[in-house]
Design a protein around this nucleic acid. Structure first.
Lengths: 326, 326
DNA sequence: TTGTAAGCGTTATCAC
DNA sequence: GTGATAACGCTTACAA
């Protein structure tokens, strides 16, 4: 790689001048500029970002921390973030946290060591000092912290919608899969659902679950139909769990949605491919990713930002695991 | 952030000494080491990786370039890479290329500008000078270049397996969805399948397709049954396309696998959740990601590596879109 | 065993 | 308009 020094030499000017044309600041004569540009082209020079970063104590790097890219919900989020960052010339250092504190800490530390100018994280502990002590802008994605910028979906409303739609469609003995109690969106959905169920004339049960993983979900699905064989409406904690439930229903010969209705959350791409296709509560993941990135960029570039808490609306996607109604 | 200078001051030694204990090289007295360690702990010091990187012209950063993390095949690959890198203290700068030359070039350029020590890429043009001109180690993942290290699956064998299994199970009028002709694994699968079909006593058609996207696939699925309504066996170019085909078959009231068998490639997580669940040719994506990372690390650290071309075996996963046979 | 100082590739300050 | 040069935080000869 050529350096600014070599460019300066072949253009017959000083490094200062080259730097000026590079950064388009200071005065530089038109002829000089041309000579420099030629030298740059000839040497195929691009500035060393590391040296820049060292001097300015600022890079063009952003840290992105997601629980697990292998969970089909997160790629969408990630893609939204990446697209927006890409367009604004920021690059992403990416890591999976597996929701483990230690991994989060390690990643955040290396983010800082690499002079990232901002971080986006979907953590379950936004208020821990891993984050509160951070001296660079950060935004929580798919998570909330009252004190800090966050982009998330209206989980509570999502839970309400799910419950309402099931009740409206005639389910009388509903089972709610609670979802992990350490994940905020899961809690919100759960509480929203319960709020509605309480005020309706329906019976409901709650089954505790502790993760969003498919393997676990298959076990809970069996549990569910074992414990509550006559349930006729299921609110799953997300689409993955819903898929497992649907599959188990299948295996048991239960007709969906005639005998049992199922509703999920997220609207991951897979959900429309299932047979019957999955009714679900849509979260605009890609848009949320983009929004988080935009917000972070504004924070970084010191622009005025009124809205630091963006709660995205969710909506019911009617498919085939719920019955039709007028 | 504290600097090495401050550590040196509070420990009452020179920066050189601090550097020595940091990097565990050179001589340093036990007592001195202790003083330094204490200062480090007290100041909560961690070395500035940017400064390190500038001096050594080497970072702990790796560039990872994937076509589209939103395609369910890639998160697995990415996770494999990340896990291995993480365990070896390397971090990832990640980008989606969308298979566009320009984006690839831009990313590779910024990788270099950021002193990455290696790159892993799933590109369709491994032999373009974007890569051949690269002066840092690189490995192609899910792609092959004869000249350069590559980790990929045996697509040709995969194609053969798919064709054999379909024929063995009685399909007589097979349709092969060709897959994008600019993507090597797709070509390999296609050629493998054709090779077998040619030598068997079956009739077959080929339908050209140009991407792996779900939206496109839905169109091709309609096309397929429009053009070849009596087809009784379909080799899809991957699981996404297979899912779309399955769904269309469903819509048309065709019974799967009785009237038409379907087989995909990849064995993405979704494939087992479909109803009927999808028979497919498994690619060990996670393991491939890990292997690529291992290989790259060996290359970076100058270890001896006999195997620079790793072709992973694939295998048939029998599920419900193919008929049973003894 | 430890310290001094040069240098990694930039940017910005200050002279000229 | 342009050029020297110090500084960013670190590592590594080289000296002591």
């Amino acid at each position: 790689m050529a350096t600014i020094k070599e460019v300066a030499m072949t253009a017959g000017v000083s490094v200062a001048t080259v730097s000026r044309v590079l950064n388009q600041n200071g005065y530089v004569h038109e002829d000089t500029r041309r000579k420099v540009d030629e030298a740059i082209a000839k040497l195929n020079y691009t500035p060393n970002e590391v040296a820049r970063s060292l001097f300015k104590r600022k890079s063009k790097l952003i840290g992105l921390l997601l629980p697990d890219i292998t969970n089909p919900y997160f790629p969408q989020l990630a893609r939204g973030v990446e697209d927006e960052m890409q367009e604004n010339d920021y690059r992403l250092i990416f890591g999976n946290s597996d929701e483990r504190r230690q991994k989060e800490m390690d990643y955040i530390q290396t983010f800082v060591q690499n002079n990232v100018v901002g971080v986006i994280s979907s953590t379950n502990d936004p208020d821990t000092d891993i984050y509160t002590g951070l001296k660079i802008p950060m935004v929580f994605l798919d998570r909330t912290s009252s004190g800090q910028p966050s982009v998330y979906a209206d989980g509570r409303e999502g839970g309400k919608i799910a419950a309402r739609e099931l009740v409206k469609r005639g389910s009388k003995r509903i089972t709610v899969l609670q979802g992990p109690t350490h994940v905020q969106p899961a809690i919100d959905r759960y509480e929203g659902a319960i709020e509605i169920l309480e005020e309706q004339d329906v019976h409901y049960n709650v089954l505790e679950t502790t993760s969003f993983s498919l393997t676990d979900a298959e076990v809970w699905a069996k549990d569910l139909f074992g414990k509550y064989p006559d349930t006729d409406g299921i609110i799953a904690s997300n689409d993955i769990v819903a898929s497992a439930v649907l599959q188990e229903a299948h295996r048991l010969g239960k007709r969906v949605p005639e005998e049992v209705q199922i509703i999920g959350f997220d609207n991951i791409p897979l959900s429309k491919l299932l047979a019957p296709s999955l009714s679900t509560v849509h979260q605009p993941a890609y848009e949320m990713g983009r929004a988080a990135a935009q917000l972070l960029i504004q924070l970084i570039e010191g622009q005025y930002t009124e809205q630091q808490h963006m709660k995205f609306p969710v909506k019911f996607i009617e498919r085939e695991t719920t019955r039709k109604v007028d």
